[in-house]
Design a protein around this nucleic acid. Sequence first.
DNA 1: CTCTTGACTGAGG
DNA 2: GCCTCAGCCAAGA
Length: 109
Amino acid sequence: MKPETLSFFDRVYEVAKLIPFGKVTSYGAIANYLGAKRSARMVGYAMNGSHGKDIPAHRVVNRKGLLTGKHHFDGTNLMQQLLESEGVVVIDNQIQDLETVYWDPNKEL
DNA sequence: CTCTTGACTGAGG
DNA sequence: GCCTCAGCCAAGA
């Protein structure tokens, strides 16, 4: 690939697609993997365009494991249900046992 | 070029 | 542990 031709958004999508089934990661982790540790907000912002793509956006949460982006999904609890269907325990928009399901691209890739 | 907008994060009280 | 504040940076108007 020619990353130079890909925008920051496109890189976020590529990483998001690499998230294993039943795992989650944080915006900051993705940003750090892209070499822009301070651009965690951009990662989330990029996910706005993830709709209509093969992006498992529900596997991306903030560093606390809180489903801050659930408001961008259709249903009120769609994001939570998607995660639970993958074996991730979620209670009140908060991922339980985060360390167990956490996937860090910097360590895994 | 300037200004606004964020699905964030770390530091301080 | 919780709440608040400020910095961060790319994209779009």
